[in-house]
Design a protein around this nucleic acid. Structure first.
Lengths: 228, 228
DNA sequence: TGACGAGTTGATGTATGCAACATAATCTCT
DNA sequence: AGAGATTATGTTGCATACATCAACTCGTCA
């Protein structure tokens, strides 16, 4: 098997082109560039002290991930998803995670279940402590665990791409402040886990989809989400 | 809006880098290369009379699509999905197309419905005439129409990638010869369309998933599908 | 005879130069 | 002064040369 590297989104890729790609992605997602700002190859090249060639490859990848738009012969520009795209992406997220929850439910007792158990406990603690940052991280872990627990690499790949496009962590942090959302969210998580433990794959899928849908509503009704 | 190009899989991409990518993909999917065969950059470069640079970009794309494997510092090799990957891809296909059917059902009467109506009629004709090639094309159109009818570009994108990986047309042609499969398949298509026309998005999704699942069973039980 | 290792080969990875093109600024003519 | 054409500029797109590394060959030694 080829030497691989697993990103924080669970995407497994060849290790060789990860460092630069990740650094460029981080730079762009870091918010240093406002949406629509041009990202010149030469700038990134001297920024990371490499030639334009590897930069070009990284930008191509990021175009794939939907983070930048490459206009031929014109330039590369940071891209923020439109509201419509966010809706589309959440529809996909709902489908992906529903599928994952169903698949995980069919697998019976696996290691992931205990991870989810512990996650719920820690989520309660974080919620009680009012630690939004930690809570957001735990939400991420919960969903990530279910995706990986589905034991379907292709699903994990597509999901990784999806999440890169959504820049999800930013969105979640916003909604963590919505009153009552944390409690509702944790409760939904608990329902999902119960269904999975009961091997009710149909119910698990439905519960997960409901949860993702509710979560997407929170994001989309947040006034800070772009509306064009 | 940027000038774009729509592939046969419904993937919309900038036009500038399409021709070469498509030609390289066609060459590899064409079967001229056995699985595992090396695909040297210089070979492709002189084959298409360009330099290695655009070839490299195309190969990177194809790696994304899962058609080739790039081993760093070693080379690029054609890749055929393992049986496990095919199973995984069909699980995703089921999810994608189920989602699409549900979304289409919610849209009410749209242009796509008449396309599907006509498709079923022509499918009956092709089946009666025993024209497997035409029937396979119509199956492709049916599924493609539902995906596009979902009116979700991100879904269409991911679906396009998925289908590229599956090299679906090859697989369908195999199963078109299975006794009784054509009749069953057409019947399933009809059920899906009825559900959609009834705006029963839940039923449409379920019917579509059942259909895809049945179809995947046919492929996976075909002796010619690789089993490693 | 088999295992180990230096050298060779052939491929990819990167850097850089030049050309082509889109866009913006300027100039000219009315 | 305004509108069109033209020049100017900055960017990407491609080609090519060189650096780098993995796999193989072949010779040496135990």
């Amino acid at each position: 098997m080829q030497e691989t590297f697993t990103t924080e989104q669970g995407l497994t890729l060849p290790v060789h082109d990860q460092p630069l790609l990740d650094r460029v992605r981080a730079l762009i997602l870091g918010g240093d560039f406002p949406p629509g700002a041009p990202v010149s190859e030469v700038f990134l090249a001297q920024e990371f002290d490499v030639s334009r060639t590897p930069i070009r490859e990284a930008l191509k990848q990021l175009q794939h991930e939907g983070l930048v738009e490459i206009r031929p012969k014109v330039g590369t520009f940071v891209r923020e998803p439109t509201r419509r795209e966010i809706v589309e992406l959440f529809q996909l997220k709902e489908s992906f995670e529903g599928l994952a929850a169903g698949l995980l439910a069919r697998r019976g007792p696996v290691r992931e279940l205990s991870v989810l158990e512990r996650n719920l406990e820690e989520s309660d603690e974080a919620a009680a402590a009012g630690d939004a940052e930690r809570y957001a991280a735990l939400v991420h872990e919960f969903h990530q665990t279910i995706i990986l627990g589905a034991d379907n690499n292709k699903l994990a790949e597509h999901y990784g791409r999806l999440m890169n496009q959504l820049a999800y962590h930013r969105l979640v942090l916003r909604t963590a402040g919505h009153p009552g959302r944390i409690i509702a969210s944790t409760s939904e998580h608990r329902t999902v886990l119960e269904m999975i433990k009961d091997k009710d794959h149909f119910g698990a899928e439905a519960a997960m989809r409901n949860h993702v849908y509710a979560s997407s509503r929170e994001v989309l009704t947040d006034s800070r989400t772009r509306t064009d």
